[in-house]
Simulated scan of single mutants.
Amino acid sequence: MRRLRRSTLGWKVLLAVLTATPAAAGIAQVPPPAAFVVPADMQVLFWPAERRERDLRRMAELIPHARIAPSPAPRPLPAGEPLDLDPSAFMEAERVAGLLVIHRGQVRLERYGLGLTAADVWDSFSITKSLTSTLVGAALAEGAIRSTDDRVTDYLPELAGGAYDGVSVDDVLTMRSGARWDEDYTSATSDVARFYLTPPPAETDATVAYLRALPRAHPPGQHWNYNTGETNLIGVLVARATGRPLSAYLKEKIWDPAGMESPAFWMLDAQGREAGGCCVSATLRDWGRVGLMALERGAVPGGAIATPAWFETATAQRIDFPDSDRGYGSQWWTRGEGARFEAAGIFGQLIHVDPAKDLVVVVLAAWPTATGRARSEARLAMIDRIRAAVD
């Protein structure tokens, strides 16, 4: 399998006040506002640290989300032998709201901070990308998507005539479309800054309308560029192929069979559609169940979510980063040349999966900055401590 080297790295997210779609079974959505307005105080990247610590647990109260009901058959998470490890200093220094360690199917450590409780949800930011990837696997398993070798225009023909001509579903999943995209959140003129602020033409999906206007910067499949808009595009493609809103499909294909015990909330865009690239809010324990789903290659108690081969492909290292043990797969990050893999979001969110150790580690946090090398290294050091402690 051909690998590519990283060209740029952007871990960013977009948030806006958004409208809603009609409710589906098990899904509740807020009424749409009278007008679509993005209040200045909802620019999460620029909130003071204390507000993130307070409000990342209540995003569904602040902006429209779809509510995903709990599974009718919650998966038990039995307690195991407590780890001989005190994470208190790490949690305080790194502003950690939740730390969960599941080893061999048992909870070995579960701690909360910043006032979070086991009943509270926390925003995941780009952890959601890995859920959207899994929904592609589910759509493949049921035949709604025929192959990731298909062209995205096979499912979204209105993209024809632009940078997405000749781009495969796999190219988009691995962020190698070649379309020019600027993920710079420090610039008001970047694509990610303007993405949700550009009104779409009538009867046109907002994501498709914006992305079909992008120019091509590289041939498809040859250049990696982190692009939240393209994960939103994957979400549009899954919804179109399955005929289901993403929140309904998430409930059917992941939330119910994986045995989630609490509701989740998925941020909606200006047209009332779920943002495939961001912002599912869920409890710490349910994020642990997401990690178990990936660890078990989708063979969860409630039935197979996708094929084991899909998970092997999605979590394999497809992109190599020079001078790093990190890589990228299909909306999953990898470590150790793919021996371990992660779902990750800004401000410190992480699900770390170590198949060799039968281990899932979840970190929910409110870092003072969206990203940071020192904080990433501190978190990795804690994960290494945990990996040593479970031996």
Results as ranks from 00 to 15, higher is better:
237 L>N: 13
283 T>W: 01
242 T>G: 08
259 G>V: 04
260 M>H: 08
256 D>K: 04
274 E>V: 08
211 L>P: 08
261 E>C: 06
272 G>V: 01
232 N>S: 15
226 Y>A: 01
255 W>S: 03
247 S>A: 15
224 W>E: 07
238 V>K: 06
220 P>V: 11
206 A>D: 09
270 A>C: 02
202 A>E: 14
262 S>E: 14
178 G>C: 08
261 E>M: 04
195 F>V: 04
176 R>V: 05
232 N>K: 03
261 E>Q: 10
196 Y>T: 09
215 P>V: 06
180 R>S: 05
268 L>Y: 12
284 L>R: 12
267 M>W: 15
171 D>Y: 09
266 W>N: 08
230 E>D: 03
235 G>I: 11
266 W>T: 10
237 L>D: 14
228 T>M: 10
228 T>W: 02
229 G>N: 10
212 R>K: 15
285 R>F: 03
231 T>V: 11
205 D>Y: 12
204 T>W: 13
244 R>S: 07
263 P>W: 04
208 V>F: 01
284 L>T: 07
189 T>C: 06
260 M>C: 09
245 P>I: 02
206 A>E: 11
191 D>E: 00
187 S>N: 09
237 L>A: 12
229 G>R: 10
270 A>R: 10
270 A>F: 02
268 L>C: 11
212 R>V: 13
264 A>L: 06
221 G>L: 02
223 H>K: 01
243 G>N: 05
197 L>R: 15
265 F>W: 12
278 C>F: 13
206 A>M: 10
241 A>K: 05
190 S>R: 00
210 Y>A: 09
195 F>C: 03
261 E>D: 15
220 P>M: 11
219 P>R: 14
219 P>Q: 12
261 E>V: 02
269 D>V: 05
224 W>N: 03
218 H>R: 11
237 L>I: 09
228 T>E: 15
255 W>H: 05
280 V>A: 09
276 G>A: 11
238 V>W: 04
209 A>Y: 08
263 P>A: 14
257 P>M: 00
243 G>M: 04
188 A>H: 07
256 D>R: 00
268 L>Q: 15
200 P>L: 14
234 I>C: 07
272 G>Y: 00
171 D>F: 09
210 Y>D: 02
219 P>C: 00
281 S>H: 12
283 T>L: 02
280 V>D: 13
237 L>R: 13
217 A>T: 06
178 G>A: 06
279 C>K: 10
280 V>N: 10
230 E>Y: 01
227 N>M: 02
170 D>P: 00
276 G>V: 07
262 S>M: 14
218 H>Q: 09
283 T>E: 08
193 A>F: 02
247 S>C: 10
195 F>P: 07
261 E>A: 14
232 N>L: 01
181 W>K: 08
246 L>V: 03
189 T>I: 12
193 A>V: 02
233 L>T: 09
283 T>D: 08
279 C>R: 09
224 W>L: 02
236 V>M: 08
214 L>G: 06
265 F>T: 02
239 A>L: 05
185 Y>C: 05
278 C>W: 12
186 T>S: 12
271 Q>F: 10
238 V>P: 06
229 G>L: 07
230 E>G: 00
225 N>R: 04
187 S>L: 15
251 K>Q: 13
234 I>L: 14
281 S>D: 13
200 P>W: 14
234 I>P: 07
224 W>A: 06
224 W>H: 04
192 V>C: 05
252 E>L: 03
281 S>G: 13
